[in-house]
Computed example of a mutant assay.
Amino acid sequence: MKMNPLGRTGLTVSELCLGTMTFGTQTSEAEGHAQIDRALAAGINFIDTAEMYPVNPIRAETIGRTEEIIGNWNAANKGRRDEFVLATKHSGEGSRARNGAPISSKTIPETVEGSLKRLQTDVIDLYQFHWPNRGSYMFRQNWTYDPSGQNKDETIANMEDCLEALQKQVDKGNIRFFGLSNESTWGTAQFLRISEERGWPRVATMQNEYSLLCRLYDTDLAELSVNEDVGLIAFSPLAAGLLTGKYLDGAVPEGSRKSIVSDLGGRMTPRVHGAVAAYVDIAERHGLDPVHMALAWCRTRPFMASAIFGATTMDQLEVVLGSVEVTLSDEVMGEIDKAHRAHPMPY
């Protein structure tokens, strides 16, 4: 398993990260614990969760359940906590946590304490803001997102307020490092500037959507990542299952995410079918599993820290693990580039 630096933290993480957002809905606690065991045995040392998980669906009454499942594993496996880097996220406006209160110095202490308690751990290795208070380009909002109504002074003041609150959590030993999620280049640059000026926690990572079908990160954020050592933790590297090919020709496998969320979070567009077919065709012609190709491609990106995968079943987990043995040829990489040019931004 290839290991990559986690920003400037001094930590290294595996090229694959175990995502847990279905633990408690599609994935039972027993299955979740089995996945943790198998992932660690395979060399994965990175687990990602969030206070608002599980999803599919998101319900107020299940907020925190995924963290509890991981916490129960920690309690049953005392002495193994140092085998992996544990990341979680603070939700803000638009979530069902704290009635959608924005992220601030008022919410950070109670949220950190809540996650620590549910996770049954003394420290959170990577504490992330799930999305910006001011809104985000992510989740298909890039088509209509308009930043012109933002109040820059209020945004900067909130960033300063949050970073100072995070410093207090670092001083207490509750968290080690800080990351962002669903952020923009400008927002990340401001956090970096403030932390440098004030000596507060520095952005170590960015967790944004990234896959063969979603390459918004390839422009300004990629440049920032490379020059500022802010590694991408890619979520949905298989595009919510689209890149497996299992939804081709209108198929909807029983128990799949599409059987629960029919539009796959806005990813099911008229143009996505042609793009998926193009990538699956490349994989099949070169004797590759489409899952392996998609994940191996992520590994080629110069800004990639880790790719988060979610596996509903152990069989799916085993397929994902096989991707680390795959190296893409120059011919495959060239065909992927051609497919991207032919099918840019399919959703």
Rank of each mutant, 00 (worst) to 15 (best):
residue 211 S to H: 00
residue 334 G to Q: 07
residue 57 P to C: 12
residue 137 Y to S: 11
residue 347 Y to V: 04
residue 77 N to V: 07
residue 271 R to F: 09
residue 251 A to I: 01
residue 315 D to E: 14
residue 23 F to H: 12
residue 341 R to C: 03
residue 90 H to C: 11
residue 251 A to R: 15
residue 281 D to G: 03
residue 256 S to F: 13
residue 297 W to E: 07
residue 269 T to E: 07
residue 242 L to E: 04
residue 239 A to T: 06
residue 4 N to M: 08
residue 108 I to C: 10
residue 184 S to N: 10
residue 338 K to N: 07
residue 82 D to S: 13
residue 330 D to C: 07
residue 173 G to R: 15
residue 181 S to Y: 08
residue 135 G to V: 14
residue 286 H to P: 06
residue 26 Q to S: 11
residue 171 D to M: 04
residue 205 T to F: 12
residue 255 G to D: 14
residue 282 I to R: 02
residue 131 W to S: 14
residue 18 L to W: 12
residue 280 V to Y: 01
residue 42 A to H: 03
residue 136 S to K: 13
residue 38 R to T: 12
residue 200 W to A: 08
residue 137 Y to Q: 15
residue 189 A to I: 05
residue 283 A to F: 02
residue 152 K to F: 02
residue 279 Y to V: 01
residue 99 N to Q: 15
residue 109 P to Q: 05
residue 249 D to M: 01
residue 51 E to Y: 10
residue 317 L to C: 01
residue 13 V to Y: 12
residue 276 V to G: 11
residue 162 C to R: 08
residue 74 N to M: 08
residue 143 W to G: 10
residue 101 A to S: 14
residue 163 L to Q: 13
residue 205 T to G: 10
residue 104 S to R: 02
residue 274 G to Y: 02
residue 307 A to V: 05
residue 65 R to E: 13
residue 308 I to W: 11
residue 320 V to K: 07
residue 200 W to G: 08
residue 176 R to E: 08
residue 331 E to W: 00
residue 246 K to D: 02
residue 331 E to P: 03
residue 42 A to Q: 03
residue 347 Y to D: 12
residue 294 A to W: 02
residue 36 I to H: 03
residue 91 S to F: 12
residue 239 A to N: 07
residue 284 E to K: 15
residue 148 S to I: 05
residue 5 P to I: 02
residue 145 Y to G: 09
residue 4 N to G: 00
residue 154 E to P: 03
residue 245 G to H: 00
residue 55 V to A: 10
residue 226 V to F: 07
residue 81 R to E: 14
residue 52 M to C: 14
residue 37 D to S: 05
residue 187 G to C: 06
residue 134 R to D: 08
residue 295 L to V: 06
residue 86 L to M: 12
residue 272 V to E: 02
residue 140 R to K: 10
residue 207 Q to N: 01
residue 206 M to Y: 07
residue 248 L to R: 15
residue 40 L to P: 12
residue 331 E to L: 10
residue 99 N to L: 14
residue 93 E to H: 14
residue 82 D to F: 00
residue 120 Q to P: 01
residue 40 L to Y: 04
residue 56 N to G: 06
residue 41 A to R: 09
residue 98 R to Y: 13
residue 98 R to D: 11
residue 322 G to M: 00
residue 59 R to V: 13
residue 155 T to C: 10
residue 15 E to W: 03
residue 232 L to D: 08
residue 235 F to I: 05
residue 206 M to Q: 14
residue 267 R to L: 12
residue 13 V to W: 10
residue 118 R to A: 09
residue 261 V to N: 14
residue 299 R to F: 13
residue 247 Y to I: 03
residue 14 S to R: 05
residue 335 E to S: 00
residue 284 E to N: 13
residue 55 V to L: 11
residue 339 A to I: 01
residue 211 S to N: 03
residue 248 L to W: 02
residue 121 T to P: 04
residue 277 A to V: 00
residue 303 F to Q: 02
residue 279 Y to Q: 06
residue 209 E to Q: 14
residue 45 N to L: 04
residue 9 T to G: 09
residue 202 R to V: 03
residue 187 G to W: 06
residue 46 F to I: 03
residue 330 D to P: 04
residue 235 F to D: 04
residue 168 K to C: 00
residue 14 S to I: 07
residue 271 R to A: 14
residue 128 Q to Y: 02
residue 282 I to T: 08
residue 35 Q to P: 05
residue 296 A to C: 06
residue 89 K to T: 09
residue 280 V to C: 03
residue 83 E to L: 09
residue 11 L to C: 06
residue 235 F to M: 08
